[in-house]
Simulated scan of single mutants.
Amino acid sequence: MNSADGAAIVVGVDGSEPALRAVRLAAVEADLRRRPLRVVHAFIWPLLRVPVGPPTAGPPGSGLRQQAEDVVARAVAEAEATRPGLRTTGEIIDGEASAVLLGETPTAAMIVLGDRGLGGFTALLVGSVAVQVATYADCPVLVARGEERTDGPVVVGVDGSPPSRSAVDFAAEEAASRGTALHAVHAYRYPTPARPGDIQPLVYDQDALRDEEQRVLTESLAGIAQRHPDLPVTRETVRDRPVPTLVEASRRAALVVVGGRGRGALTGLLLGSVSHGLLHHSACPVAVVRAPQ
């Protein structure tokens, strides 16, 4: 996470109900982390050369620009009602939503989004903006989906990869700030190939594999007890596919945290299959954390 002094939690809004859910979640995050909240609305109409002022024969308070200002004002009011006294600002930025929000990521502590916005197709479980921002962001991305719970642990998916280690650090901070437990889950099915393109062995020692996967989980949690001595930590190693395992864990969690790409991800995929699956199917909010570049 960007640890620069004053780095804000940034939430993208478009006037939809999922965006307002994201605002409430972002307000809680900003309050927990004692950071300001920045509400951002991407205003695409000037790029399309569409008139944005009030129509010639229309009332003074109409027009696309005024609608955008209303969206931001409503979101700021929602944040202040959720966490009174929170330092909250709002801004309209000309541009397409994904580009505008990605432009915020180098200086943001976190980006928070709804799972779908006004432009979402009803057949899609998660919107394209959320997927694109989670794929390319330079900071953690938190997507408001599923149930908003104040209880339950922070669940983190672990596989030993650099993004997974970043996810563990982020999840530990989240759990500590929320005053809840950290539950680390490592799901595996077969031995992991040593290099991309290697085939899986047809014969292997299942006991040795279990011991190796438990070691991966233990090493991934190294240092957490020293940095967060009062944090309750539980661990679980499961022989199953990661996505259904984490989706099941999300039914009892306040938050699920995953890395952007894990050790099983194809090199051509910037967003790994596990993080993509959680964004679509988690029963609670999901944070996607990429390894530092």
Rank of each mutant, 00 (worst) to 15 (best):
A75G: 07
G58F: 10
V100A: 02
S62D: 10
T105P: 09
E78S: 09
T88Q: 01
E80H: 07
L102W: 06
A109I: 00
R49E: 15
S62Q: 08
E91C: 09
A75N: 06
Q66V: 13
W45H: 15
L102G: 09
V72N: 03
L113M: 09
P59A: 13
P55G: 05
L64G: 06
E96C: 01
V50W: 12
G53F: 04
G103C: 05
T56A: 15
L102S: 07
A73Q: 11
T105F: 04
L113W: 10
E91K: 12
E96K: 10
R65A: 14
V52I: 10
A75D: 03
G58V: 11
T56D: 15
V50L: 13
G85Q: 12
L48W: 13
Q66L: 12
L64V: 02
E69W: 00
L47A: 11
D94M: 01
T105L: 03
T105K: 03
E69Y: 01
R74C: 06
P51D: 05
G85A: 11
G90N: 03
T89R: 13
S98H: 10
D94W: 00
A108K: 05
L102I: 07
P84C: 07
Q66S: 15
A81K: 14
E91L: 12
L64N: 06
P55A: 09
A73H: 06
E78V: 07
A68K: 01
V71T: 12
R65I: 05
A97V: 03
L113K: 11
E69N: 08
P51R: 01
G90K: 00
A81T: 12
P106V: 02
A109W: 06
V112E: 05
P60I: 06
G85C: 11
A109Q: 07
G61A: 12
E96W: 10
R74L: 13
V100F: 04
A79P: 12
T89Y: 06
V100Q: 03
E69I: 02
R87Q: 14
R74E: 14
V100C: 01
E91M: 11
I93C: 05
T107L: 14
T105Y: 03
V112Y: 05
G53S: 08
L47G: 08
G114E: 08
I93T: 11
Q67W: 13
G58R: 05
G58P: 11
A108S: 13
E69K: 04
A97L: 02
V100D: 02
R74Q: 14
T107A: 15
T82Q: 08
R87H: 15
V100E: 05
R87Y: 06
T89P: 12
A79M: 00
E80Y: 09
E80Q: 15
L113V: 11
V72W: 04
V76P: 09
A109E: 03
G63Y: 02
Q66H: 14
R83W: 12
A109K: 02
I92E: 00
I111V: 15
G63A: 04
E104M: 13
A57H: 14
T107D: 15
P60A: 03
E80K: 13
R65G: 09
R83P: 08
G103I: 07
G90R: 00
V76C: 04
